[in-house]
Amino acid sequence: MRTLKLGTHALAPTEAELVRMLLRLYGHNGKCKWAYAETSPYDALLVDASSLHTANVFQERMPAKHMLRLARGLDDADVLSRPLSAHKLRSWLDEVEESLSASAPVTPHAPELALAPAATPEPTPEPPREPPSLPPESAPRYRLERWPHQMILRKDPARIRMATLLSRRALNARDLVALTGFDPQRCLVFMQVLQASSLLTPAPPEPAAHTAGGMRPPMLGKESASRTKTGLTQGLISGLRKRLGL
Rank of each mutant, 00 (worst) to 15 (best):
Q150N: 11
A209G: 11
T164Y: 07
P204L: 05
P148F: 00
G7C: 03
R159M: 06
L200P: 02
A178R: 15
A116W: 03
T14S: 14
L6A: 10
R24C: 03
M219D: 12
L25H: 03
R227G: 03
Y36V: 02
H149R: 15
Q195C: 08
G30N: 06
R168P: 03
L80W: 01
M191Y: 04
L25T: 00
G221S: 15
S40N: 11
H87D: 07
P125I: 04
P108K: 12
R169G: 08
C187P: 03
L70K: 05
L11Q: 01
R241P: 00
P13W: 04
K33H: 13
L46S: 02
K155T: 01
P127L: 08
P111A: 00
M1G: 05
E17F: 04
K88P: 07
P128E: 05
E130F: 03
G73W: 03
A44H: 01
D76T: 13
R154Q: 10
G214W: 04
S167P: 07
A208M: 14
C32M: 06
L113A: 00
S99E: 13
G245I: 12
R169M: 09
R129A: 13
D175S: 06
A209V: 15
H210E: 13
S81A: 15
M219P: 07
P63T: 10
P128G: 05
E122F: 05
S51A: 05
E223D: 03
A16V: 10
G27K: 02
R161M: 13
L165I: 12
E145N: 07
H9T: 07
E98W: 01
S224L: 09
G30H: 02
Q234N: 06
K242V: 06
V79L: 13
S138H: 15
T54R: 09
V106Q: 00
Q192T: 11
A225W: 09
M219N: 13
S101D: 00
R90H: 11
P148K: 06
A86H: 15
R146E: 08
E17V: 00
P41A: 06
L171F: 06
T3R: 07
L84P: 09
A10N: 08
E130V: 14
